[in-house]
Structures are given as C-alpha cells and as structure tokens.
Design a protein around this nucleic acid. Structure first.
Length: 423
DNA sequence: TCTGGGGTCCTAGGACCC
DNA sequence: TCTGGGGTCCTAGGACCC
C-alpha cells in the first residue's frame, strides 16, 4: 500500500516541511438589482413600484411643467427589447432579466419601463469598486455589478469575535458593505467562503442586502439542498441533462459516482461537476486581465433581407465596423482576427472569421475583412442581427513584428470582395 | 406576443510544419 | 513511396456568464 503523499514527501525531501495550505477567505460581492437601483437614486418617487430597465432610447421619462414626471409603462412598449434588470417589486410579478419586454408587458402592464444608461452604471461601478478597495484591494472584476475579493490578507480577518469563529470575517464583510453604501447609496450582497465557487453561490442566498458566511462544514445542510443549476457553470443545457438523469440538487450531484458523471459529460466537465458539488475550487482571485476581443452587434427593429434591404444593411455594417474600430483606438488595442456574426429570422446564428496578416484598428480594413467573411455565409433568409468582432488583440504599444508567412502572401488583394459588396 | 449586447472558454477538425 | 506523431494556427459552433 502506498504511503500517504505527505509522509512520502517528508521522507524523500526532509528539508521541505509539508505545510497545510493557508485558509483562504474569498468574498463574492453582487450589487442588488444594480441598474434599477441606480435609476431609483435618480427617480426616488418610483420607489416601491415595479420597475424594469431595458429597451431603447424612446421611453425616456419626461419632466412636465407641473414638476411631475411622465414615465413609460410596459403596456405602451412595442419592440424586441428584453429586461436587463427588474426591481424586487417587479420580480414579484414574475419579471426577470432576459425576459422579452412584450412578454413582461403581458404579466405586468403597469410596471414602469426605464431606458438603460450604461454611462451612469459604469460611473457607479467605479464608485463601488473604489469603496471596496479601501477595505480590501485584492479585487477581481466580474463585470459591471459584481466582483470577487480575496480577504485572506485583510488585517483581523481570522480573529474570532466573542464565540463567533467567523466574527472577523463578518466584521470585514460588513465594513465593505458599509463603505459601498456610504459611497453610492446602494446596497449589495456578499458571500464569504473558502473559494470563488461557493462565495458566488452564497452571495445569492440572502439577497438583497445579504451577508452570508459559509464554511466547508456547512456544505451538507446549506449548499447541498440547492438546485444544481445554481452552480455558476451549470447552465440551461447541462441542467436539463442532469435533470433527465435524475439529478436535481447539488447534493444529488455530490452523491453521483464521478466515473458515471465522466461517462455522461466527458472527462473535463464531468470531473469539474464532481468537484463543484463538493465545494472544491482552487481558482485564484485574478486582479488583472487583458481583453481578448471587442465586438459590436445590433438587432434590427424588423428582419432585413440581404438583397431587398441592401443599402440599409450596408450602412449598418459599416457603422458597426466604425464603432468597433473606435473602441479599439479608444482602449489602445489592435486586433488581427476579424469576425462576422449573423442571426437569421429563425434565430439560428452563424459566424465567420478571418485572420489578417497584420494587426489593425482601421475601420476600412475591418469592413473589408468582414465583407470577405460575409461572402462565405448563406443570405437567403432574412436577418435579425448583424455583428462585427475583432479578436487576437494586442496593446497598441506592444505589437509584435509580423511573423514570416508560411503560405505565399497574396501580393495582390482580391478587390472583388468590396467592389461588388453583397451589402 | 418569444428571445439584447458584450464577453470568455472549450471542443473539434483541418492545414501545415518539423 | 509510405508511415508516424507532436505542435501550432485557423476556423466554426456552442455553452455559459453578466
């Protein structure tokens, strides 16, 4: 029988003492109904009413002469927008993010509809992240309204308070919540556990304005009863497949034979499912990362046809290329892989991409490459969405010299691509 | 009343090179 | 001429997340 790993290591390498890994305290912080809460700071008179954020610019609130404000309600909405955020009052009607606004209108015709204002949300995003950093600077950005925080090195984190072994953890998390509230006027929910996977799960357990601390010992009674799809990484497809296999809760998943999971989900995902259900996750809090791609896309108000609506499509196509080029310049990146995305009227999506010999941020070059991609795509059906993506990014000030091409470089560009554009 | 816009990561096949 | 295996790059699609 093989000796335990620690024993073997200590005999074969006596100068290295095996040390138990330092306990980690990882927080996940999620702002409560973020976009909607920011809007309620602007329109406090809407507090208590069901409010959803989404749709275009057309339903901006209008200030009347008598000082009252006219706001749009869902019953007046017509279009293809979806809810990006719903207040808790709106959620009580069954409204939730991702739901089509037309469907939402059927459920709650008198709910208030406000347009999105990303500039404002980004401003509040910077404010809350700065407030967190004053207490705990090890922050991983996970989008506009949530972050992971490594609290392991925060002074006092592992000091019990009274009989509460996790008193230090609770005190630090509360200090973060207080600082966010002070800086923004907004509430957030925090989960603190030994890793990102569990913290993400726990920040959701006591929303809104929650503070949930969970240890591995709490796993069986606090985590295992939850539905498997609450795990970040188990989406609609995996969840449906698990249910078809008789697995609904995280506990069901934890009890499943890992080899059986691998048999059904493959070595990589199957192994991960097993570890996730047992609350195991070693991922670090990553405080810095570079973007991999930038893109712009738009869904048309009505489906367009490549031939019948050629000019309109061409204008939109060119504008998307200009926008993404502008994003590249503004953020200081060049890209090498140009991608095209189409969605047909039947919602089927296709993509094509093309890697250029050199990095670029030039709108005309992007337009030309995306035009090449367009020629490889069927255009019989009407289109509902068009998108342009630039990938394989590189900072403008760190562009590598071009690799010698393996294949013969096309000395003459095939101009047919855009002298005879499809649109 | 169907289903936005911005991303990341993974898989898998084929080309191509050594 | 046939037969390899490994490695990288490119492309397409899909799952998933905020």
């Amino acid at each position: 029988m093989a000796a335990p790993l620690a024993a073997r290591r200590s005999t074969s390498c006596p100068t290295v003492r095996p040390r138990p890994p330092m306990p980690r305290y990882i927080a996940h912080l999620d702002m409560d109904a973020f976009y909607a809460s920011v809007e309620l700071l602007r329109y406090p008179e809407l507090r208590g009413r069901p409010v959803v954020i989404g749709g275009g610019r057309r339903h901006q609130p209008v200030l009347r002469e008598d000082g009252q404000r006219d706001v749009a309600v869902l019953r007046d909405y017509a279009g293809r927008g979806v809810i990006t955020t719903a207040t808790y009052e709106a959620r009580a009607y069954g409204l939730h993010s991702g739901m089509g606004l037309m469907k939402a209108a059927a459920l709650a015709p008198d709910a208030v509809l406000l347009p999105t204002d990303f500039d404002e949300y980004r401003r509040y995003s910077r404010l809350f992240k700065a407030a967190v950093a004053e207490v705990a600077p090890q922050i991983e950005d996970r989008g506009i309204d949530e972050i992971y925080i490594d609290l392991s090195e925060v002074p006092g984190i592992d000091e019990p308070v009274g009989h509460d072994a996790m008193g230090g953890v609770r005190a630090v998390a509360q200090a973060i919540k207080n600082n966010v509230q002070r800086a923004t006027g907004l509430s957030c929910s925090i989960g603190v556990t030994p890793n990102k996977l569990l913290s993400k799960l726990c920040s959701d357990l006591d929303k809104p304005d929650g503070l949930t601390v969970v240890t591995l010992a709490d796993l069986p009674h606090r985590i295992w009863p939850l539905p498997a799809k609450r795990i970040n990484g188990i989406g609609p497809k995996a969840s449906a497949k698990l249910e078809a296999l008789g697995i609904r809760s995280i506990g069901d998943l934890a009890a499943a034979d890992p080899q059986w999971l691998v048999g059904h989900f493959g070595i990589s995902y199957g192994t991960w499912l097993h570890h996730a259900a047992h609350g195991r996750d070693e991922r670090a809090v990553v405080t810095y990362s570079e973007p991999k791609s930038l893109s712009r896309e738009t869904t048309f108000e009505r489906d367009l046809h490549a031939r019948l609506d050629r000019e309109q499509l061409s204008r939109i196509f060119t504008r998307l290329c200009e926008q993404v080029a502008d994003d590249l310049v503004r953020k200081g990146y060049l890209g090498k892989t140009i991608g095209l995305k189409l969605r047909y009227d039947n919602f089927k999506t296709v993509t094509r991409d093309l890697t250029l010999p050199e990095y670029t941020c030039d709108a005309a070059l992007i337009r030309q490459a995306a035009g090449q991609c367009l020629k490889r795509v069927p255009l019989e059906r009407r289109l509902r969405l068009l998108g342009v993506r630039v990938g394989t990014l590189c900072r403008r000030d760190a562009v590598p010299s071009p690799r010698p091409r393996r294949t013969a470089a096309p000395t003459e560009e095939p101009p047919a691509a855009y002298t005879l554009p499809l649109f």
